[in-house]
C-alpha cells in the first residue's frame, strides 16, 4: 500500500444473485484528491462506495482504505471516514442537535470540541433556530444538511458522499463545494457520486465513469476528452458517448410521435 493512495481497490467483484454489480474493478485514489464516481443507474457506483466502508463484502479482490484492509478492520476505517448515503435516513425522533450530539459521541469527540463544531456547522448551513425541532419536521434539504454535518463533524480523512448536494439550496451547495476544496488543501480525500455532471466537472480533480460494473473511463477532464475524442465537449457529452447513451435525439423524436 502506497502512502500517497487513500483508496486502493484490486480486482474487486460483487454479484447479487444473477446481477453482476461490480466486475473486477481496479481503482486507486490519491490522498487529498476529489474523485467523482459517475455512471448510469445500476452501474455499480453505490455498491463500490459501500464496499469502501465495509458495508458490502466483496466476493473477490481486496479493498484498502487509508492503509487499512477494510475486511480486516472495518471499525478502524469507519472511524476515519465520513459517509453520506444517497437519500440518508436519520433518526427522525431526535432533534437536529440531539442527532449531531449522538454522532459526536459515536466518533468519540471531546465535549468542548463537539459543541464548537456543531454550533459552527449549524450556523454555516443556516440551521440555527431549528436545531431543537424533531427531525421529522425538517424539509429534505434540512435533513441533507444534518447528514452532511454528521459526515464532517469528526474531521474525517476520507469523505464518501453519495449525491451530497441533492435538495440543498444554492447557498448551502456553494458552501459545501468550497468547503470540500478547503478540506482538499488539508489533505482530506473526497469520493463523490452524483448524477449532476456539472457539479462533478466543477468540483472533481479526477472522474471515473462506471458502466455495467466496470470502470469505463478514468482521468481528469482533459484525459476524458481525449478518450472520448470530443476535444471541446463538456462532461455530459463525454458521459453519454462513453456509456453508449448518446441516442437522445432519436428517443425524443420517438416520444414526440
Amino acid at each position: 500500500m502506497s502512502e500517497t493512495y487513500a483508496v486502493e481497490l484490486k480486482s474487486v467483484g460483487k454479484r447479487y444473485n444473477e446481477i453482476l454489480a461490480v466486475d473486477q474493478v481496479d481503482l486507486t485514489i490519491k490522498t487529498g484528491e476529489i474523485f467523482g464516481l459517475l455512471g448510469p443507474n445500476g452501474s455499480g457506483k453505490s455498491t463500490t462506495l459501500k464496499m469502501l466502508l465495509g458495508l458490502v463484502q466483496p466476493d473477490s479482490g481486496s479493498v484498502n482504505v487509508l492503509g487499512i484492509d477494510v475486511q480486516k478492520d472495518a471499525v478502524a476505517v469507519k472511524q476515519l471516514v465520513g459517509y453520506v448515503p444517497e437519500s440518508p435516513r436519520l433518526y427522525e425522533f431526535l432533534t437536529g442537535i440531539e442527532y449531531l450530539d449522538f454522532i459526536g459521541d459515536i466518533y468519540g469527540m471531546q465535549t468542548a470540541e463537539k459543541k464548537t463544531r456543531i454550533t459552527e456547522y449549524l450556523k454555516a448551513l443556516q440551521l440555527e433556530g431549528r436545531e431543537g425541532d424533531m427531525i421529522n419536521g425538517y424539509s429534505e434539504g434540512m435533513k441533507q444538511k444534518i447528514a452532511l454535518i454528521s459526515a464532517f463533524l469528526h474531521r474525517p480523512k476520507l469523505l464518501i458522499l453519495d449525491e451530497p448536494l441533492s435538495a440543498l439550496d444554492p447557498r448551502s451547495a456553494r458552501i459545501i463545494k468550497d468547503f470540500l476544496h478547503q478540506l482538499k488543501m488539508q489533505g482530506v480525500t473526497t469520493i463523490m457520486s452524483t448524477h449532476v455532471l456539472e457539479i462533478a466537472q466543477a468540483v472533481c480533480d479526477r472522474i471515473g465513469i462506471m458502466y455495467q460494473g466496470r470502470i469505463l473511463a478514468l482521468g481528469n477532464m482533459k484525459e476524458l476528452r481525449q478518450m472520448s475524442k470530443l476535444p471541446d465537449s463538456g462532461l455530459e457529452d463525454i458521459f453519454l458517448k462513453l456509456t453508449g447513451t448518446d441516442d437522445i435525439r432519436a428517443v425524443v423524436e420517438e416520444l414526440l410521435k
Binding site: 432533534t95 465535549t111 463537539k114 424533531m134
Partner: peptide, 25 residues
C-alpha cells in the same frame, strides 16, 4: 407541526451513564 423539544444554548453533558462506566459510544 414540527415538535420543538429544546431551545436555548446547546450544552453537551457527560451524563450519568458515563459515570456508571459506560463508554461514550
Amino acid at each position: 407541526p414540527a415538535l420543538t423539544i429544546s431551545r436555548g444554548t446547546y450544552a453537551p453533558k457527560t451524563g450519568v451513564l458515563g459515570k456508571l462506566g459506560f463508554s461514550m459510544v
